[in-house]
């Protein structure tokens, strides 16, 4: 059970949007985190690596800044076992590579550009995620 938090959701979502617009304004790219991550790890040049690494470092620093400003750690609860994490991680890694994007790249940036590919991709992964949770929690029982 997690609480419905519409205000935090809208404030956070707006910040995500501002971040995505900053990526476009400064770097001229869509803010797809899977793409930025994959480019940082499988980088083709040092020049391309630097901004990606800096962007990811800024993201990783965010919870510490949040805790420093609000005085409390962000709510966090791991919903599965380590084995499930590893299996799901492999699937997400394979899926975003073939699907060319994730929730940020397709679901935010792609939809904002009204890209037909992103509309299809977002529809597919959201529907499949809902179906997976339904099967996992209600059919085979979690």
């Amino acid at each position: 059970m997690t609480e419905f938090t519409p205000v935090a959701a809208v404030v956070g979502g707006t910040l995500i949007g501002i971040g995505a617009v900053m990526v476009m304004l400064f770097l001229g790219r869509v803010a797809g985190i899977s793409g930025i991550l994959s480019g940082a790890v499988f980088a083709s040049s040092w020049d391309d690596w630097g901004w990606r690494a800096a962007f990811l470092a800024g993201m990783i620093a965010a919870p510490a800044v949040f805790t420093w400003v609000t005085g409390q750690a962000p709510e966090f609860m791991m919903p599965g076992t380590t084995a499930v994490s590893i299996f799901a991680g492999l699937l997400v890694g394979i899926g975003v590579t073939f699907g060319a994007g994730c929730a940020s790249g397709h679901g935010v940036c792609g939809l904002a550009r009204l890209s037909p590919r992103s509309i299809v991709a977002t529809g597919v992964f959201m529907f499949v995620a809902v179906a997976t949770v339904f099967v996992n929690r209600h059919l085979i029982g979690g």
Partner: peptide, 14 residues
């Protein structure tokens, strides 16, 4: 695109 997004959806849902 479709298969990749579906595989990603399973992982995200897990």
């Amino acid at each position: 695109l479709i298969a990749g997004s579906a595989i990603y959806g399973v992982g995200w849902g897990l």
